[in-house]
Every structure is written in structure tokens, then in C-alpha cells.
């Protein structure tokens, strides 16, 4: 394992022009994608396929939330709400009105954009801690509403959602998911480097300065919110198609927190980091499954240990910090 760590890096550097722009640094994206594409050739048991598919979906969620939290610096504790809106919109249309799942995507887009505006509109002027509780509240409101309404199937939810193309094989679905998620990751990375992406970072670093420079923080934040909502909603469509069922139990506060944890664990604002964080958080509980009763205890302890070792995240956003910044970030007694 140490061999590719040293030898491989320089080898890959030689083909550096190859995929510049996929991720901040050039090669991890294609390598991961390749790994994802080759996965089923190594192991195509239903369990492995299922795990790989859910991992891909959580990657998409984490990347979407990263737009809101990482790029724009808005703490969102209710991201599962958008996930739920997407999953339920497509699920209801597909099961109650027999739409093909792909046909529901435009409606899902509209619904998530509306959800983003409804949730973001009145609340984005709030200070971040209050924004956190408001998003938490919205997350709970969406979940409870889904739990109470009849059209969403009440507590047991909707079942019998067809696959993306109508009952395709799990392998086909996995590959479709990987392609969609890869596009979503690339799209998020590109957004981050676009004009609006720069505005997001600007607003995150200093709202007043941004406003003074003619960037409207409110509109910029709303754009981040809507982008995050769209990513989450599309992930919801995949989620419903994957499980064939959607129920309120998948959108609890804990689920929102887990997505947020993927973002923070990986390194806020860093796309490769967030992808890694999502993979770790999706795979780790399954890897610990055989510990039975110890599973979540060990999971919790591991989370603490990882953060103690890498407080900036597994793979933090590229730092352009000056020595002064570094001095401000690390307090003397911690360094000692």
C-alpha cells in the first residue's frame, strides 16, 4: 500500500494534463471513478452492489451540501429535507400516477428549487446559529408532514418505485448511478470555480466586504441554497429508485447530521475531501456491522479519533494560508 503512495504519485504527475479540472488536483477523481466502475467486476454480490450504490448516493448528497456549507459557509442542519422532497416527489408521481421515473426529474427540479426558495428565502438573513436551528426545524417539518399525510403513504411511506428505466438490473442501476454522481461531483466542482463559486467564497469569508464590492450576499446565498437543494433532490430520486421504497425514517435529523458530518469529516469546501468523507461514513458502519452491539460505540470513538488526528478534515480544501493565518488558527497551547 505504501508503494503506490510514493511511486504512483510521480507517475501520475507525468500525465498531469490528462484530467485537469476534474478535481482540484488532477488525478484522484478519475482514479476513484475507475475504482467505482471496476467495483462490480471485483464483487457483484447484491450486498456489495447495494453498498456501492448507497455510497455513491451519499457522495452526491455530501457534494450538494458542500455547496451550501463548504462553499458558502451556511450551516444547514436539515439537508435531508431536500433529499426527502426529491425522493417523495418522484416516488409519488411514479407510484400514484405511474410516471416513468425519468419523467419525474423535471418536476423534482422544480419542487426542489421551490423548496430551496421557501426555506432559504425568509431565513438567509439570519445569523448562522439561528440559520442552523431554522434549517433543523424545516427538516423536521418536512419529515413530520410526510409522516402525517396520506399521499406520502404515512409512516410506512411509498413502496414499489420502479428503477430509473423501469425495473432494470441492479448492476445497470449502479452504473447509471455512478455516471450521474460523477457528473454531479464534476458539476459541483465546476460551480465552485465559476463566477458564482468565487462569490460564495467571498461571502463566506466576509459578507460585508462582498456587499461593498457589489456582490449581493442574499442573492448569492440563495443561489447556493437552491444549488444544494437541486443536488439533494436528485440524490433523492436515485435513493427512491434504489430502495424501491421511501419512508420518513430515512430523513431524520440524524440523517441530516450524517451528511453534514461527511462534509466536515472530509474537509469543508474541498470536493475530493467531501467525496472521501461520504465514502468513509457510508462504508464504515457497514464495515463495523459484524461487531453487532459494539458497532455504533466503535463508530463514535473512531469519529472522535479521526478528528483529533486530522482536525481540518481528512482532505482539507487547499490552503492558501499565510503564516499569520496559521498562527491565528492554531492556538499556542495546542501546538505545544
Amino acid at each position: 500500500m505504501s508503494a503506490p503512495g510514493t511511486g504512483g504519485a510521480s507517475g501520475l504527475d507525468r500525465v498531469s494534463g490528462f484530467a485537469r479540472g476534474l478535481f482540484d488536483s488532477r488525478w484522484p477523481g478519475p482514479v476513484l471513478l475507475l475504482a467505482a466502475l471496476l467495483g462490480p467486476f471485483v464483487n457483484a454480490t447484491p450486498y456489495a452492489l447495494n453498498l456501492m450504490t448507497t455510497t455513491a448516493i451519499s457522495v452526491m448528497l455530501a457534494v450538494g451540501l458542500n455547496i451550501v456549507v463548504g462553499y458558502c459557509g451556511l450551516l444547514d442542519l436539515g439537508y435531508a429535507a431536500f433529499f426527502a422532497v426529491g425522493a417523495y416527489t418522484s416516488g409519488v408521481l411514479a407510484t400514484r400516477f405511474d410516471w416513468p421515473l425519468l419523467a419525474t426529474v423535471p418536476v423534482v427540479l422544480v419542487a426542489t428549487v421551490i423548496a430551496g426558495i421557501v426555506i432559504g428565502g425568509p431565513t438567509l438573513r439570519l445569523r448562522s446559529d439561528y440559520l442552523a436551528i431554522v434549517t433543523l426545524g424545516f427538516g423536521e417539518i418536512i419529515r413530520i408532514t410526510a409522516n402525517n399525510l396520506d399521499v406520502t403513504g404515512g409512516p410506512s411511506g411509498i413502496h414499489g418505485i420502479p428503477g430509473l428505466f423501469g425495473g432494470e438490473d441492479k448492476v445497470v442501476f449502479y452504473y447509471a448511478t455512478v455516471v450521474i454522481v460523477a457528473l454531479a461531483v464534476i458539476g459541483a466542482a465546476r460551480l465552485g470555480r465559476s463566477r458564482i463559486g468565487r462569490a460564495w467564497r467571498f461571502v463566506r469569508e466576509d459578507e460585508d466586504a462582498a456587499a461593498a464590492m457589489g456582490v449581493s450576499p442574499y442573492r448569492v446565498k440563495l443561489a447556493a441554497y437552491i444549488a444544494g437543494a437541486v443536488w439533494g433532490g436528485l440524490a433523492g430520486v436515485l435513493f427512491g429508485a434504489h430502495l424501491s421504497a421511501v419512508s420518513p425514517g430515512s430523513f431524520r435529523f440524524l440523517d441530516s447530521a450524517l451528511i453534514l458530518m461527511a462534509v466536515v469529516l472530509g474537509g469543508m469546501g474541498s470536493n475530493p475531501g467531501v467525496v472521501l468523507g461520504a465514502i468513509v461514513l457510508a462504508v464504515l458502519p457497514e464495515a463495523l456491522r459484524d461487531l453487532v452491539d459494539w458497532q455504533y460505540f466503535v463508530f463514535g470513538v473512531l469519529l472522535i479519533l479521526v478528528m483529533l488526528v486530522r482536525p481540518q478534515g481528512l482532505w482539507p480544501a487547499r490552503s492558501r494560508e499565510t503564516p499569520q493565518d496559521a498562527a491565528r488558527a492554531v492556538r499556542p497551547e495546542v501546538r505545544a
Partner: peptide
Amino acid sequence: AYRPLRGAPRLSLLITAVGASFALEYGMHL
């Protein structure tokens, strides 16, 4: 879980907090 991270990004503490929460809950479960 918190003091060693006091200089880190604030949200890193969120992770250790959730980790501690899991550890306490499922520790008690054990």
C-alpha cells in the same frame, strides 16, 4: 473530545460531539 480541537474549524467539533454522543449512547447500551 473538545479541548484538543479548540483551534480547529468550529464544525470539526461537531463531529467529535456527534461521535461522543454515539459513544455515550451505545456505551450505555453495552
